[in-house]
Design a binder for these strands. Structure first.
Length: 401
RNA sequence: GGUGGGGUAGCGAAGCGGUCAAACGCAGCAGACUGUAAAUCUGCCCUCUUAGAGUUCGAUGGUUCGAAUCCAUCCCCCACCA
């Protein structure tokens, strides 16, 4: 690839990109020196389950690697151990050193499903942050004004609405910006919500005598609900470690309108192809379900292989279209004594409480051996091989033991 | 330091002495409809094997036949003015 081609390739799908000229100069310089650029990406150590939302960024990082550059993957362990003391954010509980170590390890295992290990440098920001004393921090903070901070969209909105903003929240972007200085980043990649922080890194590098990093953002993709961004705490995510069938099933429940985004950002289908498929669906030539099946299979195949993908698709049809039983049903070991149906369901893990079990029964969601049960006071004698079904997704097979 | 406003079920938010297990919205779950969904409609949504009962409304005491609602003390949160 020549430099122009590389620029096109690297900036594909980006939302913000500052700037093409800057990056071009950096690429030219690096090329003449026979080295790659340093691409920074910061990760929060509190969420070790990598999901498709992260994949959007990881895909782009991989593209940089394929073009010969180095990814500097920073795990924000220093800030992670402090957390967000305001307690506003559930995802920012302070972590212990042990937790951070465990999370970091699982992070590495997962990201290398996408990234090239040989072109990745993993760094922990405690490496430099841990050495700073308070005077260093004060000096650092002197580089940024309150007005600059208030330029960040969510800060200005909250300030205007008389919502609290803690000092910690002011300090964290600064820490992130300082990370850029310490690793001498040439470009930092992040979600669109990171734009301010990424730009701050640029400012700080300038102030501290470094060539400022380029900045690139990618969209935050909405999760399964189709509205909120994918995150573990909202439970609308698809984890890359999930079993093939779960992964496929979740992808099938993505709202139709959203699947194009997934094709583009998760499955890395070229935009011309996505447009083509999209118009085929809009004209009625292709059924949306078919497209979503392709999406599901592609994503599953990437993490689990083609065979698992076909299997997941077939299983899905069996359960939801044909309403058959899945070919593997979780077993519950019970004694053969007569028991109330309610507690039976709780024991089988099909309901969290008797109340919930009762509700399910009253609503006609419960079947035993394919026969609907409507009496919540039913007494059941468990038998080997008995199938208890609750709603569309709940299955249990009784095993006497 | 001062002033004002708050803490109610997973979240948001009503309630301000009995009719409160607590309106309403969101989320969640189930049924119908589908393409699996979305949208829509219906039902459920603290716990307890039904009618019924038992624990809830920041905490602890108190006043009352009766408290989420009144009083006292305490804890926590927020904004504003300094």
């Amino acid at each position: 690839m020549n430099i122009e081609e590389q620029l096109d390739f690297l900036s594909a799908r980006a939302v913000d990109f500052f700037s093409r000229d800057d990056l071009k100069k950096k690429l030219e310089k690096a090329q003449s020196e026979g080295r790659g650029l340093r691409i920074k990406y910061g990760a929060d150590p509190s969420a070790p389950d990598i999901h498709l939302g992260h994949v959007v960024g990881l895909n782009k990082l991989r593209e940089f690697q394929d073009a010969g550059h180095t990814v500097v993957f920073i795990i924000g362990d220093f800030t992670g151990m402090i957390g967000d003391p305001s307690g506003k954010s559930q995802t920012r509980k302070p972590l212990t050193k042990e937790q951070v170590t465990v999370n970091a390890k699982s992070y590495q295992e997962q990201i290398f499903k996408i990234l090239d290990k040989d072109k990745t440098e993993i760094r922990f920001n405690s490496e430099w942050c841990g050495k700073m004393d308070f005077s260093d921090v004060i000096r650092l903070s002197a580089h940024v004004t309150v007005a600059q901070m208030l330029a960040r969209d969510d800060f200005s909105k909250r300030y205007a609405a008389n919502q609290p903003i803690s000092m910690v929240e002011f300090l964290y972007p600064l820490v992130q910006a300082y990370d850029s200085v310490m690793v001498e980043a040439d470009l930092e990649l992040g979600g669109t919500d990171q734009l301010f922080n990424l730009l701050l890194g640029r400012e700080l590098q300038k102030v501290m005598g470094q060539p400022p990093q380029c900045v690139m953002t990618l969209p935050l993709i909405e999760g399964l609900d189709g509205v909120q961004k994918m995150s573990k705490s909202l439970n609308n995510y698809v984890g890359i470690d999930e079993a093939p069938r779960d992964m496929y099933g979740k992808l099938m429940s993505v709202p139709d309108a959203l699947m194009w985004k997934y094709f583009s950002y998760v499955a890395q289908v070229p935009s011309s192809k996505v447009e083509e498929w999209k118009s085929a669906v809009e004209s009625g030539a292709t059924h949306p379900r078919e497209m979503k099946d392709i999406l599901g299979k592609r994503v599953v195949a990437r993490f689990h292989g083609a065979e698992a993908a076909e299997d997941a698709s077939a299983e899905f049809i069996r359960i939801f279209r044909n309403k058959d039983l899945p070919d593997e049903i979780p077993e519950v070991v019970l004694s053969a004594e007569e028991t109330g149906l309610l507690s039976l369901m709780v024991q089988a893990g099909l309901a969290k409480s008797n109340g919930e079990a009762r509700r399910l029964i009253k609503q006609g969601a419960v079947k035993i051996n394919d026969e609907k049960v409507s009496d919540d006071r039913a007494q059941i004698v468990p038998e080997d091989g008995m199938i208890i079904r609750s709603g569309k997704r709940g299955f249990a097979k009784v095993k006497i033991g």
